[in-house]
Design a protein around this nucleic acid. Structure first.
Lengths: 160, 160
DNA sequence: TGCTAGTATATCGTGGCACGATATAAATAT
DNA sequence: ATATTTATATCGTGCCACGATATACTAGCA
């Protein structure tokens, strides 16, 4: 039976969530200033930033957004209504739908993403450090030291 | 006029959001297994994990959740309906409402938080490292090296 | 002491979001 | 040719978040 969590542990979990939340909501604020809902910006970003070797299909986007596929379908519906994206049926597999940005979506995405890149420089490192500091504090989590996983190499180097 | 963002930059932003999203949704899954909605778990956690020296008032909770105060009011309404929390009027300032956990809420929070602490050990460090790695790679953001805020100890070096 | 300004919470209408259940179409396996 | 699997789509439902607006309480000031 696991031990009861202490107040310090609850506070550490809460602080972690607060920092992540604050960081994400900064981006949401910028998105809403351009007329985009937070999830809409995220979908545009996931379409534009789909990993190499993948296509922006409903199922791939569902995976990247960590949502059930029909939630993505409905999100795309709403985006189509605003002319941010369009659907087209895949030639290779006619069950699949490819989602691509329309110029309006591309432009709005760029405005938000520009801002987000700037903010990442300002606060992204602080977020990473805050998370690492919270994890490092062994006392916050059962008083035992956490063994940090060794990070992999940078993204660009991974792909050959 | 800022330069156009490259595909690599979009991919880096998208990857960052994917990792954060994946991490958060792990917790959501555990929360929903206990019958809690994601935001409900978060509210319970913010009440229990309020920083020392603060009280769990609507305005303090709104700050910790990075929400408008009336969104917190409505969230508390829904939680009260489930007997997870209760409101009480502050003696010191009768405008303020103090929110506290009821036994049912406390129990559900503990179940989820226990699981989250375990998962933090497993994936929290990976998240921090992923964020740091994405930020560190200067090419992903305008090809210029980002000057990392100096962490107390280097992430990689901290623990072997 | 009374009035004004500021602060904290509450309510309502509205639209976005997410899911489970269910359905259809296409591809694959047998 | 049939059965199974996979991809997307639709609907009902409840949760979430905000702007606009309202009420109650506290603090400051003349």
């Amino acid at each position: 039976m696991p031990k009861e969590l202490s107040t310090a542990e609850y506070q550490a979990l809460a602080e972690l969530r607060y920092r992540i939340r604050k960081f994400l909501r900064e981006g949401d604020t910028v998105a809403s200033e351009t007329g985009l809902e937070p999830q809409q910006y995220l979908l545009l970003l996931m379409i534009r930033g789909i990993p190499n070797g993948q296509e922006a299909t409903v199922s791939n986007l569902a995976e990247r957004l960590v949502l059930k596929h029909h939630s993505v379908v409905e999100l795309i519906d709403r985006m189509e209504a605003h002319s941010y994206v369009r659907r087209s049926r895949s030639r290779e597999d006619r069950r699949s739908v490819l989602v691509s940005l329309l110029p309006r979506g591309e432009k709005l995405l760029e405005q938000v993403a520009q801002h987000r890149v700037s903010e990442l420089r300002a606060s992204g490192a602080a977020l990473a450090n805050a998370i690492a500091a919270l994890l490092k504090n062994g006392r916050a989590f059962h008083g035992r030291r956490i063994s940090m996983a060794r990070p992999r190499k940078g993204l660009e180097k991974r792909r050959g």
